[in-house]
Nucleic acid binder design. Structure first.
Lengths: 165, 165
DNA sequence: GAGGTATCCGACTAAATTACTTGGTTATTT
DNA sequence: AAATAACCAAGTAATTTAGTCGGATACCTC
């Protein structure tokens, strides 16, 4: 699990699709303008998103991309993994280049962590991300109205929900 | 919050320290050998870890580094942030280069996600990471003994614990 | 105090990745 | 036929990562 600006671009673009793609496909040119990402770079990213069946395309005038599944069925880990495909795991995964004892242990610990992050991001769908905003603003309104309750608890609640706890 | 091999190196090195540094400081040369990371690269990483007061150094023969706090008090987010210091937030944070409406919204959504990841990693201490291994092997032994219960629940349990739920 | 050890420090470099550019083609609509 | 927008490949600039080199400084041991 890697988390770079590349993944951010992909998630941002997918969020744009989720927010604006309710009626008909959205062209990359539109996303490019709104999110300030170069068109050709978007093309490269969407080629991978398409291969991973996260988006579907419509060619020709009025065409573009749409999410290929319900917003609830697409999670952040899917998007980031799709776009990072190719380069990973230079560690001693399966290979015999790992000495015995301690080295393998720490590598294993890292892998555990990496898996935890993946599990965490798998629990956050596009729907959850966009809805959460609503949850938050509702909460902010409630604070203003009641003068009670900070949003730390809401944060925990959201995390719990994201993890399906 | 960025998550690259650089952060992996840092976490791995810190895990090595946590596991091997119980009696006296550990030299970077030792970590370099065990974890197969170049000495000079480790020096660069530890310069940042030291500035962020995650490790303390002892110079001269028999010297090296030790964790500057209890294992429970050092979390993964601390380590990764320390080592990534400098380059970040090319987005429209605070600046006026963001158009109105949709663009700000998706950027905001990304920031929310980024914050969630940070919160998540803040909940995972070096102690938790190393202990978890013990938890897992205990669980594996239990499975072998009883033939019952897969480790999905344990995974959830660990996540819940990491999040302080 | 001489020699060895290990942190500290800065500048430079190779390799890899990222973000973008260019110049097309193909499919589809009007 | 013309315009639109996905598709595709190759190349490039910029950035980041990982490592090298050549030292200086602090500290311990003999």
């Amino acid at each position: 699990m890697k988390l770079t600006t590349r993944g951010r671009y992909a998630v941002t673009a997918m969020l744009d699709l989720a927010l604006n793609g309710n009626q008909g496909p959205i062209s990359l040119a539109a996303i490019s303008q709104r999110q300030d990402i170069s068109l050709s770079y978007l093309e490269q990213l969407f080629a991978k998103l398409r291969k991973n069946e996260l988006v579907a395309s419509v060619r020709g005038p009025g065409g573009g991309y749409r999410l290929s599944r319900a917003h609830e069925q697409i999670n952040v880990a899917d998007i980031i993994s799709a776009v990072n495909e190719s380069t990973d795991s230079t560690s001693c995964q399966g290979k015999g280049d790992c000495q015995k004892g301690d080295p393998c242990l720490t590598h294993q610990l890292w892998d555990d962590l990496s898996e935890q992050i993946h599990t965490f991001l798998s629990g956050i769908s596009l729907a959850a991300l966009t809805e959460q905003r609503a949850v938050k603003s509702v909460n902010e309104r409630q604070i203003k109205l009641s003068g009670e309750r900070d949003d730390v608890n809401v944060e925990a609640l959201i995390n719990a929900k994201a993890l399906n706890l």
